[in-house]
Write a protein that binds this DNA or RNA. Sequence first.
DNA 1: TTGTAAGCGTTATCAA
DNA 2: TTGATAACGCTTACAA
Lengths: 326, 326
Amino acid sequence: MKSKISIREVAEKAGVSTATVSRVLNKSLYVSPELEEKVNRASQELGYVPNRLARSLRIGSSGMIGFLIPDIVNPFFSQIVKGAEDYLRVKGYFIFLVSSSGDPLKEEELLKALYSRNIEGIGAILLGELPESIKAISSHLPIVIIDNYQDWEGVSYVFSDNYDGMRKMMDYLIRAGNKSFAFLSGPVNTFSSRERLRAFEDAISEENSDCEIHFGDYTFESGREMLRRLKRIPNAIVCGNDMIAFGAMMELAEMKYDVPKTVSVTGFDDILFSRMTNPRLTTVRQDGYAMGKAAGEMLLRKISGQKTNSKVLLKTSLQIRESSNG
Amino acid sequence: MKSKISIREVAEKAGVSTATVSRVLNKSLYVSPELEEKVNRASQELGYVPNRLARSLRIGSSGMIGFLIPDIVNPFFSQIVKGAEDYLRVKGYFIFLVSSSGDPLKEEELLKALYSRNIEGIGAILLGELPESIKAISSHLPIVIIDNYQDWEGVSYVFSDNYDGMRKMMDYLIRAGNKSFAFLSGPVNTFSSRERLRAFEDAISEENSDCEIHFGDYTFESGREMLRRLKRIPNAIVCGNDMIAFGAMMELAEMKYDVPKTVSVTGFDDILFSRMTNPRLTTVRQDGYAMGKAAGEMLLRKISGQKTNSKVLLKTSLQIRESSNG
DNA sequence: TTGTAAGCGTTATCAA
DNA sequence: TTGATAACGCTTACAA
């Protein structure tokens, strides 16, 4: 394994100082055409690639934005990352992505790992309560929390109107005549979970409907597992997100229940695949790509010291398809 | 925005040298209990987090592995990343993830960006021909190409037996009595696309069957679009991957074709969602998670200077479901 | 056992 | 216009 060549070797080959090489390559100061030519040739011939790490250390900025997500395989999360990445790449930033596998203990550790790498800002999707370390970090660099909200000063938030979305869903289901419900929730103390559950419970209590509630996480497996825990199959199974709904539908199919004739199933997120399940999933649409983009915009504004909203709330909308009886 | 505190401030507060602080925090040399205590306290109180960038520069290794993928939203690719990440995290490595959005021009640029960041190894999923720059990079750091193969020295490869998988699929479809075929391919000069197409064509020519071939990319949209380009709907539409198949099925549904009664549709990859479409997708299973893990293992072996296979070939298997008529 | 100082690969300041 | 040189924050010989 050959060692990488440094600016010093380029300088030697070109017969100039390292300062000149740097100036040519960054076009930071005027350099005479002859030397410029020499430097470029030497750099080319040696296949020189500047060490960005060393550069970052010296200039104090790395051109990297850190992103923490719970699960890279969940299309809703990766859609958010894509939204952010598409926006930030054009602005010259790279994304350093880490995933916590939904483990709140790892979240703190990973935030620190990001912080320690001279990242210029952090976008984070955090399950559970926001860790205290967010406060410390946010006093040193811009941080945007996505899909969560806790009103801490200095921290910014991007999230969807989860409560309103779930209320629309419940209004629709109730109007369709469903009487008994189950709620298969995401992580018990996530902001988004809590909001969705709150909307569910508010609707239920207004109607005096029958219901059963279970908690799991935002995965397909968890959906299957929660469905198995159900004491009885109600008219409608309202799920915390689409992945849970897919798991529930899969399990129901294996138990030979007919969706939506016997039981309605609904999701939340409206990921691409919700249009492709059997039957197609009725769900609440939230725009992950837009959330990621908004987070990217806020981060760049904060990095460049501009004022920015501390809170961006995105609308949700009901997508009625064939998994529900209405 | 407060500036970050450095090792120097910790040293001052503790009344010791920076060397001692470093030794305590890295447990690299014995330090007297009193000083150790002082250092730990000072570090705690200041909320000190070491600058990993500076550390990397000094010790020559960053603890980061770079990954380049075409599209973070495609579950097959993210499954590969997850396999690699789960393995590498435990070994103390972090993944620096960039995505090329399927743009071969960006691929080279991004590889360079990774290389310039003192990454210790690269795992890359590259569409199209492998860029020449791979050779240069591979002489400086370990690189593993995933889902592609080109037999270049010094480069290692992890890929599935695409040809064999598609042959099994075609054997099955032909035995089921299908006579006319269409192939909706992925990117024209990807290794995996080519192998799958080669198997398709070999099978077709042996049977003298009728066929039509279109090229696109590995996305849902491309699947829809290629289906619309079809001159006529054949007995079986064989797709380059699952995403293309989903797009094709969606379009067929809108055109009121009955899958599988009128036309069979098949995919390749067997992502999680293939079990959940309407109808459930017949496809060839390849294990993305295992590919990612294998890539991670090879990278670590290479990084630590051990010998490793230059080629890992994973088996594929036929998953017959309801989207095909057999 | 601890501290001093050099050095990792850059860029920025200061002289020349 | 160009070149020495210090500095970014850290680790590690080498000295004490």
